[in-house]
Design a binder for these strands. Sequence first.
DNA 1: TGCACATATAAGCATATACTTATATTATGA
DNA 2: TCATAATATAAGTATATGCTTATATGTGCA
Lengths: 115, 115
Amino acid sequence: MEKTIIELEQAAQTLKLLGDKTRLTILGLVKDSECCVCEFVEVLQMSQPSISQHLRKLRDAGLVKEQRRGQWIFYSLNREHATYPIIQQVLEQIPDQKEKLTALEKAGLRIQCDS
Amino acid sequence: MEKTIIELEQAAQTLKLLGDKTRLTILGLVKDSECCVCEFVEVLQMSQPSISQHLRKLRDAGLVKEQRRGQWIFYSLNREHATYPIIQQVLEQIPDQKEKLTALEKAGLRIQCDS
DNA sequence: TGCACATATAAGCATATACTTATATTATGA
DNA sequence: TCATAATATAAGTATATGCTTATATGTGCA
């Protein structure tokens, strides 16, 4: 496997974004499945504008992709990003966030959308 | 090899420290060999107080260790830190900083101290 | 067309961050 | 003991950050 070296400046930018509990959790959540804003709000127990602002930073940096489906906007991890290898490594070393989504599911709060 | 999971909060704290070009370079430098403050100043072309302040943050978080030898204080990577695996992975994915030290050496500015 | 929901954006504000300059601390060596 | 070198710390300041509340935008549906 070819090893790609990530420019220091770009690595620092990504690491700065990862260096926040909220954003790190968001990335941990989208690692496995895409999520919409209201799910983040529910899981993280934060205000909707605050979540939106964090998502915007992640999206502006290109770390996540957004896709509108009906009234929801789903966010997913951008695995094509130059710094994705860093994100991947980091996410492997922190607790899995999946259970938080299954808890949502049990509470009937998971958004299932196929429009 | 046992895989250790790093608490999200602690991971975020370390990532925040890594998310700065200066500190990321410093960690890249001490990855291979310990360095003293004046070497960082030379390599990074920044003021001494600024460097010292970055080093303090890294040391307060426990990411680096310091050791006085005569009038110099040498800094090295703390490989016992809980989040060291993250740091290690990140440093593997950015350009090696070693050449900057060899450049210093050629310029006769490397501190060699054995007191 | 109009209302409700999901989301984004704007503006304001308190705190954090990363420098600067000035000064203190510690060690060396004449 | 004094001057110098290496480093740390303090104080000041401009900018960045992450929230808040208020409002705008876009979609679905009666």
